[in-house]
Computed example of a mutant assay.
Amino acid sequence: MGRTDAWAFDPIIPFIYQPNCIERSYKGNYDRGHQLPSADRLATNEMNAQTFYMTNMTPQLDRLNQDMWAKLESKVRANRCSDTLYVVTGAYFGSGATTTTDGAGNVVPIPTNYFKVLLRTKSGTTGKQIKDCNESELISMGVWVEQKSYGNIEPPRSICMSVADIEAKTGFTFFPQVPAAVKQQNNPTAWGIN
């Protein structure tokens, strides 16, 4: 299977709450930035097509989306394992957030930041659920990315922080069954970021 480019509205969310970028992207230098990457869901055409729902899109600067962010997504994909790799990706709208328009001319807010929080077992082969692992068996990390061009570079260590730091910035709680010490980790090298 491969990339479907099946741009569509999410059938379970009213269309009025979704951007309309089916035929064209956002105005300006913004791509239809996937939150869940297309390349992460290539097992079936149906799975891949769901990544093209408008509910999975945000206006992401083209030079961020196609350069450093794409490389970050590849680094995350390289951490697949027999145990589950948990990845939460989100957009953040901080002070100073601006707007653009979607392909149909509707006003859409532009995220000021993006984040990812990652969690998996260190070995990748425990065969256990996360809730059954002790803290020495788990590894986690967060990344906080500004809505800007970083250049066509590998993800820098400067975007890496702990999951606890991302929780503090967003107000969200991630991985509630995981010991707090695991969420304090920040070891980019263990995730392939040098």
Rank of each mutant, 00 (worst) to 15 (best):
residue 140 S to E: 03
residue 138 L to S: 00
residue 96 G to Q: 09
residue 118 L to N: 00
residue 110 I to N: 01
residue 146 E to T: 14
residue 169 K to H: 13
residue 126 T to W: 05
residue 157 R to M: 13
residue 83 D to C: 10
residue 120 R to H: 02
residue 168 A to H: 13
residue 96 G to R: 08
residue 118 L to C: 04
residue 98 T to Y: 09
residue 133 C to Q: 09
residue 105 G to Y: 06
residue 91 A to P: 03
residue 115 F to D: 00
residue 153 I to L: 09
residue 151 G to E: 12
residue 169 K to N: 11
residue 121 T to K: 02
residue 86 Y to N: 05
residue 119 L to A: 01
residue 114 Y to K: 03
residue 121 T to P: 07
residue 141 M to P: 04
residue 119 L to M: 10
residue 127 G to W: 11
residue 129 Q to E: 15
residue 114 Y to W: 10
residue 88 V to E: 14
residue 130 I to K: 04
residue 118 L to R: 00
residue 111 P to N: 13
residue 165 D to M: 03
residue 96 G to K: 12
residue 158 S to H: 13
residue 80 R to F: 11
residue 92 Y to S: 02
residue 164 A to F: 06
residue 152 N to Y: 12
residue 82 S to W: 09
residue 136 S to I: 15
residue 118 L to S: 01
residue 84 T to E: 13
residue 164 A to T: 11
residue 138 L to C: 05
residue 143 V to M: 12
residue 85 L to V: 13
residue 146 E to A: 12
residue 101 T to D: 04
residue 84 T to N: 11
residue 136 S to N: 15
residue 95 S to M: 13
residue 156 P to I: 10
residue 164 A to D: 06
residue 138 L to R: 01
residue 141 M to N: 03
residue 110 I to Q: 02
residue 100 T to E: 08
residue 85 L to R: 07
residue 157 R to H: 07
residue 92 Y to C: 04
residue 154 E to C: 10
residue 160 C to V: 11
residue 85 L to S: 09
residue 148 K to D: 06
residue 86 Y to C: 05
residue 112 T to W: 02
residue 150 Y to W: 10
residue 87 V to T: 11
residue 90 G to V: 05
residue 111 P to I: 01
residue 161 M to A: 08
residue 119 L to S: 01
residue 137 E to W: 08
residue 166 I to W: 00
residue 106 N to F: 09
residue 86 Y to I: 09
residue 114 Y to I: 07
residue 88 V to F: 11
residue 94 G to E: 05
residue 84 T to Y: 13
residue 110 I to A: 02
residue 107 V to D: 07
residue 115 F to E: 01
residue 111 P to R: 02
residue 107 V to I: 15
residue 147 Q to N: 11
residue 94 G to R: 02
residue 139 I to S: 14
residue 148 K to V: 12
residue 96 G to S: 09
